[in-house]
């Protein structure tokens, strides 16, 4: 391997193929798709904030299908109980014993739809499982499947009868992205084409769970040089001294940022992180963790980026 290849190899066949496959279904959203995939590779969880009907479920389905993973969807409602998420112990009369009935969370890819509709109690059941990657009921700890990837969706705006996720809980999500409306050409293609779900069901998986595990391990091996670490640190320091913010990014957020940048670099086929990788994931990783003092005038993630020179 030449020194040249260590930084800028133009994409691995594996990730390129997966991305192409996904773009066939999700039209006109290459960047969101890439971020979602990076989030999966970095073993993070994804929060999507958007209106209904822009393709959140489709995106989750695509990500699961690409690697041949199990997929379950939990619709969060105001009467959802924690047991509806993680499962419950029930008494079997014939066998005369208690048995644990695993909830829908025991799946590799979980779509938690409209999490802000459920009560905080139900929310925290999900969020704890996300953090621990295991579920404890009646004193027994059960590991969640591997890989375990949660895509939660949240409707934006103030709506009656919702419980928006508190700031501290948002930290559990590696990234927050929005999908947005497709561009006109992509929208026309969408209208012209077949049902997306059908398309997904027909297509064979592009990869395997084992390949995903391999890619997830490879993310940890992507190199971050001292110069790059200094850049990440400068960004963190900038969030802490910007006056418009309640508080800056935590050290854990810094680790998340670096790890997401590694995954982004890997998707680009590189073995070392560049400042551009950090910039590419910064908004998705940092924006939901930063709380502005004044909602309208809070500095955007983009303005923070442009305020920090690359050392």
């Amino acid at each position: 391997m030449s020194a040249h290849a260590s930084v800028s190899r133009a994409g691995t066949p594996e990730t390129d193929r997966i991305l192409r496959e996904a773009e066939r279904v999700i039209l006109g959203k290459p960047r969101t798709l890439r971020l979602a995939l990076a989030c999966l590779l970095a073993r993070g969880h994804l929060l999507i904030e958007d209106r209904p009907g822009v393709g959140k479920t489709t995106l989750a389905l695509v990500l699961a299908r690409l690697f041949g993973l199990d997929f379950r969807r939990i619709q969060f409602t105001s009467d959802l109980l924690p047991a509806d998420v993680i499962g419950a112990t029930i008494y079997e009369r014939q066998a005369e014993r208690f048995r644990f009935q695993p909830g829908p969370i025991f799946t590799q890819v979980v779509l938690a739809d409209e999490v802000n509709r459920a009560t905080p109690k139900a929310q925290s059941a999900l969020l704890e499982a996300m953090e621990e990657r295991q579920v404890t009921t009646d004193g027994t700890t059960r590991a969640l499947p591997e890989p375990f990837f949660v895509i939660a969706t949240q409707n934006p705006g103030d709506q009656l009868g919702t419980f928006p996720l508190p700031e501290s809980q948002l930290d559990r999500f590696l990234m927050r992205v929005d999908i947005g409306d497709p561009d006109p050409a992509a929208e026309r293609e969408l209208l012209r084409g077949r049902d997306r779900r059908e398309l997904i069901r027909e297509a064979p998986p592009a990869s395997t769970p084992d390949a995903l595990a391999g890619l997830q391990r490879a993310v940890g091996r992507v190199h971050a040089s001292d110069a790059l670490i200094a850049y990440v640190q400068a960004l963190l320091a900038q969030t802490r001294r910007t006056p418009g913010l309640v508080h800056g990014l935590s050290p854990r957020a810094g680790q998340a940022l670096l790890h997401a940048a590694r995954a982004w670099a890997l998707l680009d086929g590189r073995e070392a992180v560049l400042p551009e990788d950090v910039q590419a994931v910064f908004t998705a990783v940092a924006a939901h963790r930063l709380q502005g003092r004044d909602h309208d005038r809070a500095p955007t993630a983009e303005s923070l980026l442009s305020a920090v020179a690359i050392p």
Partner: peptide
């Protein structure tokens, strides 16, 4: 640009050759 990326951000730190 590529050589800079290798020398500054590449694996193994800044080598004289890079």
């Amino acid at each position: 640009a590529t050589r800079y990326e290798i020398a500054r951000y590449g694996r193994g730190g800044v080598g004289a050759a890079e």
